[in-house]
Design a protein around this nucleic acid. Structure first.
Lengths: 203, 203
DNA sequence: TTCGTAAAAGCAAATTATTTGCATTAATGG
DNA sequence: CCATTAATGCAAATAATTTGCTTTTACGAA
């Protein structure tokens, strides 16, 4: 799957006018280079220091770009970090094949819960949700849904039944995310319960 | 139920040291007055202008307080807005009695979904989740859970069965919140489905 | 290819927000 | 009522953000 990593963001004058995310604005050389450089600088800084200490001038300095470029393209730190986070939240592989639909879903959900409830995971989710633009959050949700679709298709290809994808989102993904966001840590046993409950509703 | 509205926040020097929310720091007259005045100013400004245009100096001006007071007590705008939001998210009444556990839950869940998916609702949730302190999010979750507990207790007092509160959180509250956060709007029909599904698991 | 156009980036001055040290006020506990 | 100290006020110093203007450079048409 070819994934365009280039997202350009058109930005204008006053604060209320901003954040109109227009993609493919000028994918040519320099724009893309600046985008990549800024993203990398942001990622690196997030790894080196507290999220609260990262500022736009810092990122700009590390990226070799003037701060005003970042302000004009992304608007503010929150939008930039959301943009960086959503890219990092993109799954980098297909869900592993564990032999059956239930085993696939169980393995995927356990890994998902673990990754998302980790320190960096929580921060990325927070960054995505804190942005004014709901588009990033949507994208995240889509990534997750896509993973479930792959598992569901695989199960059906095996001739097995598998619950509707929306049902899995409601009954497995949503409870895991809710607990992570609202302060709890979903343990593996609970995740397995969620999975076996939804699997018993298949077909 | 007596609810202390006074939350004091102890704050110190550098950014990474901040946001240590200590309650009951000095609930005496002036502190409480400043707290109330700042909260009211923030609420009013949020009603008058875009969230992105609200700043600490603005709030301070309207509250008749110096900005540094706000910086020292809350740390930054995000924490202050989270504090304001969590107060507004506190339920102001018991869930209405609709005659049965299922009807109670249905009525409550529909209202919850509607309020939370509204513009102001979404903003409050975002503000709460965006704060570095997970404490606010916890509190919100607790408010919701408390409402479910009331409904459950009422059902049991009627001699009826009612699903476990955690199950309701997982199967009704979490899916509603997930959809709101990740870009969807949960319609009434879907909410009713969630409720009837969980009610069929009662006992 | 070259050229015209306009988007994106750089730069620097102006504005605004944030931090900080110190002085003052006023809760709290004896 | 007094001593103590948290909380606030004030103002100077620092840092972030905005903005007007210039320069660079992608992109498309000739």
């Amino acid at each position: 799957m070819v994934l365009s990593k280039i997202l350009n963001h058109g930005v204008r004058g006053r604060k209320s006018d901003r954040m109109a995310v227009k993609e493919n604005l000028r994918p040519g050389g320099r724009s893309a280079r600046v985008q990549a450089s800024v993203h990398k600088a942001a990622r690196d800084l997030l790894g080196e220091m507290n999220r609260a200490e990262v500022t736009i001038p810092l990122i700009a300095g590390k990226a070799g770009v003037t701060p005003s470029t970042i302000y004009r393209r992304w608007g503010d730190l929150q939008e930039l970090l959301a943009d960086v986070a959503v890219e990092r939240l993109r799954p980098d592989m297909q869900p592993i094949d564990a032999g059956s639909g239930k085993a696939d879903l169980e393995a995927w959900a356990e890994q998902y819960a673990e990754e998302m409830s980790s320190g960096p995971g929580r921060e990325m989710i927070r960054d995505v949700l804190a942005a004014q633009t709901g588009a990033n959050a949507c994208k995240c949700c889509e990534y997750t849904r896509q993973q479930i679709v792959v598992i569901a298709d695989r199960a059906k290809a095996r001739g097995a039944t598998f619950p509707d994808v929306d049902l899995v989102m409601d009954q497995v993904v949503a409870p895991i995310m809710y607990r992570i966001l609202f302060g709890d840590v979903p343990d593996a046993a609970r995740v397995r319960d969620l999975v076996s409950r939804v699997m018993s509703m298949a077909g």
